[in-house]
């Protein structure tokens, strides 16, 4: 990362992170040697299909890996501190205050037995020295900021009295109220309708931009990520296959997997008369992560694969000729040409 323009050091530096699960069926290398930097204020999209390991990166950063899972190696440097070596007590001081997380199902983050007001104020009591009156005022202000009408009354409502979209707004309010420096959002809008999705993505972006928070957006939805993120990291079977500036990844993907993902999104060419053209598809299925083939994990599904792909692991290497100052790196023996 030598050519990084930013003088400031990254807020988060993940190096060679390996999170493995020792299950009965075999060793699941959910995250296997993942490295990336996240600058202050940067929005990074973590993209991949199910089994790609994207959620496990989020959980690893939060220190929420439970047995049979274990962080086997690597560093997660947050603001100069290695989170991997911190104790559970020390992590508790960071979770919620400096790093907040939003999940796909807002009900997992909200306690059904307490009012929304209780839950927001509890977060404040935990991380600030505000008085009860100040906490209440702050909670109302926060609910207002995330677009919940009549926040004074809504404070006294229970989670089940909110719709799915409104619940996720409350979760965003709780996540952002302690002004975290990093927000990890794991499929935050997947369970919601498109009209609500767009509202919430806007809300989240506005919130992190206003408070200068960095954000990791974990999703399978390439389109949503391309709308939000500054940089994109694409994962396949626990490894990074490509990372770089969002525009470059979407417009000029260099890894055949990224290219395949983008091409398999149904697009407009369908509106012709006569027989419809077929979508371009990635053949085959995601392999069993416990029995990955040697070499490149994507090789069995890749039409450019050659002998070397089936024997040797490709290394994530920066590609020359990027117009942007951000490095565009790809782990492929035969990266695609830049031309469209």
């Amino acid at each position: 990362m030598s050519n990084s323009e930013q003088v400031s050091s990254p807020l988060l530096r993940v190096q060679e992170l390996r999170t493995w699960f020792h299950t009965f069926g075999g060793l699941v290398k959910a995250v296997d040697g993942v490295s990336f930097d996240l600058a202050p204020g940067e929005i990074m999209g973590l993209v991949g299909e199910s089994g790609g390991g994207k959620s496990m990166i989020g959980f690893s950063i939060m220190g929420l890996i439970d047995p049979p899972g274990r962080i086997e190696g690597g560093r997660i440097e947050f603001d100069g501190r290695n989170l991997v070596s911190l104790s559970e007590d020390e992590m508790r001081g960071i979770r919620g205050k400096e790093i907040a997380m939003i999940f796909q199902d807002p009900m997992t983050a909200l306690n059904p037995l307490y009012t929304i007001g209780n839950q927001i104020e509890e977060t404040l009591a935990l991380h600030t020295a505000l008085s009860a009156r100040e906490r209440r005022a702050k909670a109302i202000e926060m609910l207002h900021r995330v677009g919940i009408p009549q926040p004074e009354q809504r404070l006294n409502h229970y989670p089940h009295q909110f719709s799915g979209g409104m619940r996720q707004r409350v979760v965003i309010a709780i996540a952002m109220i302690a002004k975290p420096r990093l927000l990890i959002a794991d499929e935050p809008t997947t369970a919601l309708d498109v009209t609500i999705q767009a509202q919430l993505l806007r809300l989240m972006r506005q919130q992190v931009v206003e408070s200068g928070t960095s954000m990791i957006l974990i999703t399978h939805d390439l389109a949503a990520v391309s709308q939000m993120a500054d940089t994109i990291v694409v994962l396949y079977c626990g490894r990074i296959v490509e990372k770089g500036p969002a525009e470059a990844i979407i417009a000029r993907p260099r890894h055949p997997y990224t290219r395949g993902l983008i091409d398999s999104i149904p697009h407009e060419t369908a509106e012709t008369d006569g027989p419809k053209p077929r979508l371009s598809q990635i053949p085959g299925n995601v392999p069993d992560i416990r029995r990955l083939p040697p070499g490149c994990a994507f090789a069995p599904r890749c039409r450019f694969a050659t002998e070397i792909c089936r024997t040797t692991d490709p290394v994530l290497a920066e590609q020359p000729a990027g117009r942007s100052s951000h490095p565009h790196a790809v782990a492929c023996h035969h990266p695609l040409a830049v031309s469209p």
Partner: peptide, 13 residues
């Protein structure tokens, strides 16, 4: 509204 809200690949929000 539905069409406007649908995320489009490669266009910023």
């Amino acid at each position: 509204a539905l069409l406007a809200a649908a995320p489009q690949l490669g266009t910023k929000l």
